[in-house]
Amino acid sequence: MEERILTFIKRELIDDDRIDLTADDDLLGSGLIGSMAVFRLIDFLEKSFSVRIPPEEMTIDHFMTVRAMSDYVRERQAVQKV
């Protein structure tokens, strides 16, 4: 999941395949992801991993890094299965 998200960010949001980006890099404090990109990212996560992300859970803690996003998406997947 981390790899897929990283690839999406590099190709679709930053438009730079060669950029050095890891799952633990701060995405929000580095100007990498602008406000508009956040919406595209959320849309990508919802469609690609079949989860619904409610607005009240769109928080910094869940989106600061690719790892945080993956952990959160897995959590949502588990909740939705129940």
Partner: peptide
């Protein structure tokens, strides 16, 4: 306000 907070209104309110 951090850059991160400006992108997530729920966190900004917090």
């Amino acid at each position: 306000v951090t850059d991160a907070h400006t992108k997530f209104p729920t966190s900004l309110l917090q």
